[in-house]
């Protein structure tokens, strides 16, 4: 059984069937890509995994437990971290503070009274955060006001915020959109390295096929809310149904 098991999930928005009978199994320690044309329901699927949306029917099991009915922070505490399609960071905080919040959440749980010791005195967490910033090449920006950074930097920061939590499952919604080519390649290398070093499982939504084929071990193609095929990258490349789905959209 996979780390993440999605069974017969349906989600409607009014008359629109955003997800129709979605089945998905993400095996432990793999990179599983979910691709598909715009509006296919990829983000909606992720929303159902992290507690942002509740599916109309179906089940979502993570690590042997159901995530349905749990709040987003409970699901995160179970070990799922998510990068959003539009960067979600703490814009009023510095880069370093952005990194420290997930560190505190990981160490102390969803609520803890920390007393009035200064944040500065949390040496261990600061080291962790700095190490992670170093890994994403952002250490020099640690005192920057995060709202003033470029979109690409915000994405990298958000990814670092998720990675520093050492999640069991990392969900990435188009992590390289808006990034320069060089940053995209760095991100690919980083994800590869992280995956090997920390044995985490990654589910990634991506339009950039270069990213998909460099990282993914399994690929699920979603179209109009339903999985068309699931296979290895080699088999997906020439798959007629996939071509149809993308060409159909382009036409």
């Amino acid at each position: 059984m996979g780390l993440l098991e999605v069974k017969d999930v349906n989600k409607r928005f009014g008359g629109l069937q955003a997800l129709g009978n979605v089945n998905l199994s993400v095996a432990e320690q793999t990179v599983h890509a979910i691709i598909g044309p715009n509006g296919a329901g990829k983000s909606t699927l992720l929303n159902c995994l992290v507690g942002k949306l509740i599916p109309d029917t179906g089940s979502v099991m993570f690590d042997g437990q159901s995530v349905l009915g749990r709040t987003p922070f409970e699901i995160n505490q179970m070990g799922i971290s998510r990068v959003f399609q539009t960067p979600e960071i703490f814009g009023d905080l510095t880069v370093m503070e952005n990194m420290l919040i997930p560190c505190f959440a990981k160490r102390d749980g969803s609520f803890a009274l920390h007393g009035i010791r200064s944040v500065v005195s949390e040496g261990e967490l600061r080291d962790q955060a700095e190490q992670m910033l170093e890994d994403v090449n952002m250490l020099d920006k640690r005192n920057m006001h995060s709202a003033s950074m470029s979109r690409g930097d915000k994405r990298r920061l958000e990814m670092a915020m998720c990675l520093v939590q050492n999640p069991k499952l990392l969900l990435l919604d188009e992590p390289t959109a808006g990034m320069a080519r060089a940053d995209t390649n760095n991100t690919i290398d980083l994800l590869k390295e992280i995956k090997e070093k920390r044995n985490i499982t990654i589910a990634i939504i991506e339009h950039d096929m270069h990213v998909v084929f460099s990282l993914a071990e399994r690929i699920t193609v979603l179209a109009q809310g339903t999985p068309l095929v699931e296979d290895t990258p080699e088999n997906i490349k020439g798959h007629p149904k996939v071509k149809e789905a993308y060409l159909g959209e382009a036409a």
């Binding site: 987003p72 960071i89 009023d92 609520f111």
Partner: peptide, 17 residues
Amino acid sequence: LRSIKSNQQRLTYTGMN
């Protein structure tokens, strides 16, 4: 508390209540 003001949604997806 400042992160709540800044982005409450991000905070919940980061594991804090």
